[in-house]
């Protein structure tokens, strides 16, 4: 009870700090801390998978993306918007209070009507052993409701192409912070890079039985990529070579081809033939999503060996 209240209150206070008043920079930092506390909240509620995803993607990668965008906007020196008029904030206050009341009321009503009899989840728990998977979340994502996951990988791909369309020019001149020149960075990167890859592959493999899986692994790879970009080990490139482009689409492509392939041999569309297919699809997704997130961070079409 105490911990529930502590975490829940912490979330609200941090959201307040991130959103209302103060400098934007402070807001972004508070938002990242909010993500950390939400990670604790998911863990406390009993969902290690969500905790990992929130830490790596929700707070980590999202925070890095917002930070770099903030830094770029400062460089562009765009006009800082003025503060809103009081009349507008009064109306907003009324709307916000109404929304809070509505969500609170329906939330309370919904949990008071909880029966603990979620049909779908019950069927899932009964069917899961047939798949050879131990982690129900991986089961849902890759086997039972894999159409969602397939389209979700397509969403990530669409976000990359759309971001390229928005940024225009096929060049890599979007600014990045200068790499710090300190002797300590090299040993850090040299240690972290292989270690992160090992942990990512472990997460991917463990995801079939325990918490973990392709998404968390891809976020780890993305974090490693961001580190490499920031330390100048990897630089933005003016064009995506065929390897990069292949990496971008391999997740969607492998998923679709496995699904269609099953159709050819007479199984249902997108049926997963065995545990090897789960690993194959997850590995492809991990590469695609991780690479896409790094490219979105670098703001460039491709990556090159060393920053020029």
């Amino acid at each position: 009870m105490v911990i529930d209240v502590f975490l829940a209150l912490g979330l609200v206070v941090l959201a307040w700090q991130a959103l209302i008043g103060g400098s934007l920079f402070r807001g972004i930092v508070m938002f990242i801390v909010f993500g950390m506390v939400l990670t604790l909240a998911w863990a406390w509620l009993g969902s290690p998978d969500l905790a990992m995803a929130e830490a790596a993607i929700g707070a980590g990668v999202t925070g890095a993306l917002i930070m770099i965008a903030y830094w770029r906007l400062r460089r562009i020196n765009a006009v800082e918007p003025r503060d809103p008029s009081p009349a507008r904030s009064r109306l907003a206050l009324v709307i916000a209070v109404l929304a809070t009341g509505l969500v609170g009321a329906i939330g309370l009503a919904a949990v008071s009507a909880l029966t603990g009899d979620a049909t779908a989840a019950r069927v899932m728990n009964e069917t899961l052993p047939d798949t050879g998977l131990g982690n129900p979340i991986t089961g849902v994502l890759i086997v039972f409701r894999n159409l969602d996951t397939l389209l979700e990988v397509a969403v990530v791909l669409a976000a990359y192409i759309a971001a390229r369309a928005a940024l225009g020019r096929e060049s890599a001149d979007l600014p990045l912070p200068p790499a710090p020149d300190t002797p300590l960075l090299t040993p850090l990167v040299v240690t972290l890079a292989p270690l992160t890859m090992v942990v990512a592959i472990y997460l991917l493999k463990a995801g079939s039985q325990y918490p973990g899986g392709a998404f968390q692994a891809s976020a780890l790879l993305a974090a490693l990529g961001v580190l490499l970009v920031l330390t100048g080990r990897v630089g933005p490139a003016a064009a995506a070579n065929w390897l990069t482009r292949a990496g971008l689409v391999i997740g969607t492509l492998v998923f679709c081809l496995v699904g269609l392939g099953m159709l050819v041999i007479g199984a249902p569309l997108l049926a997963i033939p065995g545990i090897w297919a789960v690993y194959l699809i997850e590995a492809a997704m991990m590469i695609s999503i991780g690479l896409t997130l790094v490219l979105l961070f670098a703001g460039a079409p491709g990556l090159s060996g060393k920053r020029s």
Binding site: P180, T182, L188
Partner: peptide, 15 residues
């Protein structure tokens, strides 16, 4: 790992 990361990041912030 935490020691290592803290060392490097503290160093960077201090610089």
């Amino acid at each position: 790992m935490a020691l290592f990361a803290a060392t490097v990041s503290a160093h960077l912030i201090a610089r």
